[in-house]
Amino acid sequence: MSGEGDPAVDAAWAYERLHVDALFRQWAEPVLDSASVQTGLSVLDVACGTGALARESRGRVGSSGSVTGLDAAPGMLAVAEQLAPGVRWIEGDACELPFDDDEFDVVMCQFGLMFFADPVQAIREMLRCTKPAGNVTVAVWDALERSAAYPTSVELLDRRAGSDAANALRAPFVMGDPDDLRALFESAGASAVSINTLTGTARFPSVRTMVEADLRGWLPVMGVVLADELIESILTEAEHALKNYVSETGEMIFDAPAHIVTAQG
């Protein structure tokens, strides 16, 4: 895995610090509940990132269970391993999982499906690795237009930093249509497909923190690196553009809806 000082590791640490508590950690419990993760089960977290869901899974399955996290990014895995050395971390492709048929009781993917080169193939692979009595559980963000502050952020990036930066921020929301999402799973051979839409809460200490999380934490993960001078200029403009989401305490708080899909092979 990547060592200290590696730009990919630095980007992964920024992602962990700036995004996990603000957005992702809150979804671990509803995803684990939907997946019926409990003591003694073997669990796979696909596109695990820095391991937020896998870490929570470890507490659920206990010493009699096992948790494996897989990601294509060695920088993410380097951070995940430092945070949770008791989890088995593996570098690999979601579209060609390096596991046997029926290896896991539960296979999960939290906010990763939209980034796979072939989402249908990735779902097929997750179904293949799941035991007949188990399930595949996947979380994806709702559509951009239903995601509160992010349309404004995307417009700001498009205008100030260009289409590559704006598209990097659009990318997490491309699977927000429930009908299309169900069709995706069914075309992969899934059965008993269920979609539950829940609304989480994005909570950042300030507008600056939220936008900086995207500019310094998310965009580099997506291969878009902006100059510091441009970042500072965008942060200044964002203070005004996103002021309606600032609470009396100065925090930036807004709704963050997502779909949780459960399915069987």
Rank of each mutant, 00 (worst) to 15 (best):
L83S: 03
Q38L: 04
G189D: 05
I90R: 06
A133W: 06
L156M: 00
Q82D: 14
A139P: 12
Q264S: 12
G112N: 03
E232G: 03
L70D: 14
R25S: 15
H259C: 10
W13K: 02
G5Y: 05
M108N: 06
G162C: 00
H259L: 13
E239Y: 02
I90M: 09
L32R: 03
D142A: 15
V120Q: 08
V136R: 08
D100Y: 04
E229A: 13
G86P: 00
D214A: 11
S187G: 08
E155Y: 01
A168W: 00
D142P: 13
D33T: 01
V154R: 00
R60F: 15
V225M: 06
I123Q: 12
G189I: 06
V261C: 12
R182S: 02
A80T: 12
L215P: 06
G40I: 04
W27M: 15
L83V: 11
F99S: 00
W218G: 07
V9N: 02
A168V: 01
A28N: 11
E145D: 12
A161V: 05
V43I: 07
L157Y: 01
C109M: 10
A80C: 11
T130I: 15
E229W: 03
Q110C: 07
E29A: 13
P74Q: 05
A35D: 01
G200M: 13
N135E: 11
R146Q: 14
A14N: 04
A149P: 00
S36A: 02
A35N: 06
L32E: 00
V261A: 05
L219A: 00
S147Y: 08
D10I: 04
L83D: 11
A72H: 03
L77C: 07
R25L: 15
S36I: 08
